[in-house]
Amino acid sequence: MSVLKWTYEVDGTDFTRAGEASSNLKKKLRALGIPAEVIRKVSIALYEGEINMVIHADGGVITIEMSPDRIDMILADHGKGIPDIEQAMQAGWSTAADEVRSLGFGAGMGLPNMKKNSDEMRIESTVGVGTTVYMTVYINGGPKKADA
């Protein structure tokens, strides 16, 4: 089974550049003829992830692996970590700065949006060490969401 793999460095110093990885991946997936709804889910989930990496973690590395039936996204940072993942997953919960909020983010929608737009999502985080988010979007249906 062939697997395509891409890696993106996320610059944690420039909020306006967040989205470059998701825009770039979107173009690649379009060129590969991936269904529009799959592309939309991947793009939104990844963009929210990028924003989080810039807001909370001074950047990080995104790895994308695509096989014929699924797209796996791994977002790894060495930021401050998430003390309480369950709390962070709640819509409306946010620790973002006012500056970020004034730009239209930081309202506690990021992680819920990532979960909503991925078919599987898992977060591993250690305070003071960093966070890794694993997201999968299935191509052509795949197994359904357990909580759908």
Partner: peptide, 15 residues
């Protein structure tokens, strides 16, 4: 009324 570069990024991603 949100006018910054992220508005454009969101427009692209949400299509």
């Amino acid at each position: 009324v949100m006018a910054n570069v992220n508005t454009i990024a969101v427009a692209v991603l949400a299509d």
